[in-house]
Amino acid sequence: MISVERVLVVRRPVSEVIAYLEDFTRAEEWDPGTVRCVRLDDGPVRRGARWHNTSRFRGRTTELRYELLVREPFRLVFRGENKTVTALDDLRFAEEGTATRLTYRASLTFKGLARLAAPFLRGEFEGLADGVAERLPPAAAAWRP
């Protein structure tokens, strides 16, 4: 398994940052690996909501089906899965004055033979996490409900 963590400050209140991030279609704006993300169900975002995510990693495109597993007042957890990998995005929120401190933890668990590649992919996954740390705060700050 590969795990990365970044702590970010977003210059918006917690409730607005959560509202922005709970809709995973917006990953197109803040995740440098996401090419496209489409909601698969309707209605308000709730636990069990699903998305189809197209990502690019190491020059290859992959499709994952994401689900919102946890939707708590200060935490969101998304799980993406396909036949070779399970991805978890765990987002924890805290008030920091009028801003939000976001702890972003992402992990990849490879399946089957793909597990053998995991040790060689850490550096690239760290680079993606750096891209999230760079892109997410301004994307969330610019969003208007």
Score class of each variant (00 low, 15 high):
residue 39 R to L: 00
residue 137 P to A: 07
residue 91 L to F: 01
residue 106 A to Y: 07
residue 100 T to S: 09
residue 56 R to P: 00
residue 58 R to D: 03
residue 53 N to V: 01
residue 113 L to T: 14
residue 23 D to F: 00
residue 118 A to W: 02
residue 119 P to Y: 10
residue 141 A to W: 05
residue 92 R to H: 08
residue 121 L to F: 12
residue 79 R to Q: 15
residue 24 F to K: 02
residue 40 L to P: 04
residue 103 T to D: 13
residue 137 P to Y: 07
residue 129 A to D: 04
residue 29 E to R: 05
residue 131 G to D: 11
residue 82 N to V: 04
residue 47 R to S: 04
residue 10 V to F: 10
residue 124 E to D: 12
residue 38 V to Q: 10
residue 119 P to E: 09
residue 62 T to N: 10
residue 21 L to V: 07
residue 23 D to V: 01
residue 51 W to R: 02
residue 12 R to H: 05
residue 93 F to P: 06
residue 3 S to G: 14
residue 68 L to W: 08
residue 66 Y to D: 03
residue 19 A to L: 11
residue 112 G to H: 12
residue 131 G to I: 03
residue 22 E to H: 03
residue 102 L to M: 12
residue 88 L to N: 06
residue 81 E to I: 05
residue 102 L to T: 02
residue 87 A to F: 08
residue 78 F to K: 01
residue 72 E to D: 14
residue 96 E to C: 08
residue 56 R to T: 08
residue 58 R to H: 13
residue 114 A to L: 11
residue 38 V to G: 02
residue 45 V to G: 03
residue 26 R to K: 14
residue 53 N to K: 02
residue 27 A to F: 02
residue 8 L to E: 08
residue 61 T to G: 09
residue 97 G to P: 09
residue 47 R to N: 05
residue 76 L to S: 02
residue 32 P to T: 13
residue 6 R to Y: 08
residue 129 A to L: 00
residue 112 G to D: 14
residue 42 D to E: 13
residue 122 R to H: 15
residue 15 S to Q: 10
residue 135 R to Q: 11
